Computed example of a mutant assay.
Amino acid sequence: MTTTPPGHTLITGASSGIGAALAREYARRGRPLVLTARRVDRLQALADELSAQVPVEIIAADLADPATPSALFAEAQRRGLFVATLVNNAGYGVPGRYLSADWDTHARFLQVMLTAVAELTHRFLPSMEAAGHGRILNVASMAGLVPASAGHTLYGASKAWMIKFSEALAQESRPRGVHVTALCPGFTLTEFHDVTGTRDRVSRMSPGMWLDAAQVARAGVDAVEAGRVLCVPGWRYKLIRQMAKLLPDALMHRIVAARAKDFRDAE
């Protein structure tokens, strides 16, 4: 039986999609929230929705700014908030082949997807370990568990990094009472594909391949509470993960390359 840690749950990228679903799931479980994202209007709307269930703090922040992680931590400290659960959810994709975007675009992506995750974890983890309990839920992706395809070149690489980061951190922190989980959903019904301009492509996929954001959030929270290091929601994606482990690499690369045009812009 796990004990619910006191304190707040801080969720990055909470204004929509899986982040908003995670906020609703934690609110359903009675966890006070700290919600952060760039879009203040959406954050406020979500806070208004959930404040009848739990206390909700909002902090507008853009993780593409290298100064944001330290400023976010300082603001939480200033408000006297103990962050018992950190959810590193903020993320997006850069469509097209690697050289179709300039370096500044890639640099901002890496800041959000890697550096901010590492820094926020480094800043909030010590107080969890000092208290002897805590949770870190890193929202990765199936893209980090299967061979990469052309297009969105850094996305799969960033998610693979997040998975390995979570695995190592879980081993380090478990003896100190902190659970760390990498949540690896497949295609999920959010606005992600609208933002990346691939909605027309992915809409042609089988409906059975789509996960519901609430389903993903529930699976992720259950996993981190139970201390499971890796969470792959949905039986189809569990099967794909096993295929990726068992089939020869060359065959998996051919399969991914053949299907990539259905969900990736490689031009």
Results as ranks from 00 to 15, higher is better:
residue 194 D to L: 10
residue 157 A to N: 04
residue 88 N to W: 03
residue 168 A to Q: 11
residue 13 G to H: 12
residue 43 L to R: 12
residue 44 Q to G: 07
residue 78 R to C: 13
residue 175 P to T: 02
residue 106 H to G: 00
residue 143 A to N: 01
residue 63 L to R: 00
residue 86 L to A: 08
residue 26 Y to H: 15
residue 79 R to T: 12
residue 186 G to D: 06
residue 9 T to R: 07
residue 187 F to Q: 10
residue 150 A to M: 06
residue 110 L to Q: 12
residue 251 L to R: 11
residue 90 A to T: 07
residue 250 A to W: 09
residue 68 T to Q: 04
residue 195 V to K: 13
residue 97 R to P: 00
residue 25 E to D: 15
residue 181 T to P: 12
residue 161 W to E: 00
residue 133 H to P: 00
residue 56 V to K: 00
residue 109 F to N: 02
residue 53 Q to M: 13
residue 232 V to W: 07
residue 105 T to C: 07
residue 187 F to E: 08
residue 14 A to C: 04
residue 50 L to V: 08
residue 52 A to R: 14
residue 137 L to Q: 10
residue 87 V to E: 13
residue 39 R to V: 01
residue 196 T to K: 02
residue 18 I to K: 04
residue 18 I to V: 15
residue 165 F to R: 06
residue 90 A to N: 05
residue 70 S to G: 13
residue 194 D to Y: 05
residue 78 R to L: 14
residue 159 K to H: 03
residue 105 T to G: 07
residue 179 H to M: 04
residue 203 S to I: 08
residue 23 A to S: 10
residue 218 R to Y: 05
residue 80 G to A: 08
residue 128 M to E: 02
residue 197 G to A: 02
residue 214 A to P: 02
residue 73 F to L: 13
residue 50 L to W: 08
residue 21 A to K: 09
residue 16 S to V: 01
